[in-house]
């Protein structure tokens, strides 16, 4: 099939046009962080750093950030452990009910967010009879973060094959020694990628979080949601949004570094 030069150009124009449009709203947020107008009318008629200094002194935002980091770190560690165990079990063994387990891991993220949210909310409040708190958010986040680690580790295990592990066992290494010295080093970048995804997923999650957060537990997304509608807080929220946009470049950059490392090995 040969595309005419015209259709190539149309396709190219469309692609670049849409991809450029994707960045417009984000750039507007960045520009508005220095917009003197509190209601963020466009175009900005000047430059001010008032919102930045107000955001820097906002205790609420800082506390929410710390809470979010705590939740994300614990949820990621749990997801790394559980996801890796599960990937090892499903990739290296065959057993009855394997497909069901496979489906079960994907379910928390495949089902619509409100479903997972209300199920856990009802599970905590109605069935277990506990009050929602910070740890209930952690449990919820870990549950839907397992799948990202699981996917990455499972894909890596599939590509690794078992020959190195078998060689290690033939040479007399025990199960734990083989895992520590042979399997784990090969999994390192998969764990990093899966962990990074899990961290980002948890740090950013809002729907399930609103269903599982206790009274005092304010993660950063909850803080943003609560303050977005207050006219005098909206510009501060805008600054926090810009900080988050800047932070979101880090994993992209890391992923690029990781993939170029892989290519270097090849």
């Amino acid at each position: 099939m040969t595309l005419s030069p015209l259709s190539r150009r149309v396709l190219g124009g469309l692609t670049f046009g849409v991809l450029a449009l994707i960045y417009v709203p984000l750039l507007v947020v960045v520009a508005n962080s220095v917009n003197p107008s509190q209601s963020m009318t466009w175009p900005p008629d000047g430059v001010t750093f008032d919102w930045w200094s107000r955001a820097a002194h906002s205790d609420g935002a800082r506390e929410a950030l710390v809470t979010s980091l705590q939740v994300a770190v614990v949820a990621t560690v749990l997801a790394l452990i559980l996801g890796t165990l599960l990937a090892l079990a499903l990739q290296r063994y065959s057993f009855f009910g394997k497909d069901a387990v496979n489906l079960l891991v994907i379910l928390p993220i495949a089902l619509p967010g409100v479903v997972t949210g209300i199920a856990l909310n009802n599970g905590f409040k109605g069935i277990m009879g506990v009050d929602l708190a910070l740890w209930t958010i952690v449990v919820a986040h870990a549950t839907f973060c397992i799948v990202t680690v699981f996917n990455n580790v499972q894909a890596r295990l599939r590509r690794m094959g078992t020959s190195l592990e078998e060689a290690s066992a033939d040479l007399g290494a025990g199960v734990w020694t083989t895992f520590r010295l042979v399997t784990l080093p090969q999994l390192r970048s998969a764990l990093l990628a899966g962990g990074m995804l899990a961290f980002a997923l948890s740090f950013d999650e809002i729907i399930v979080t609103t269903f599982t957060a206790g009274q005092g537990a304010t993660t950063l997304p909850i803080w943003i949601l609560n303050n977005m509608f207050r006219p005098n807080q909206a510009p501060v929220v805008n600054v926090v949004a810009v900080v988050l946009i800047i932070f979101s470049i880090i994993p992209v950059w890391l992923a690029q570094r990781l993939s170029s490392d892989v290519e270097g090995v090849r």
Binding site: V24, V29, N238, I245
Partner: peptide, 14 residues
């Protein structure tokens, strides 16, 4: 990788 809420917020602003 950009925050979900940031994206919704940016459309609210736009």
């Amino acid at each position: 990788w950009a925050s979900y809420l940031v994206k919704v917020f940016s459309w609210r602003v736009v």
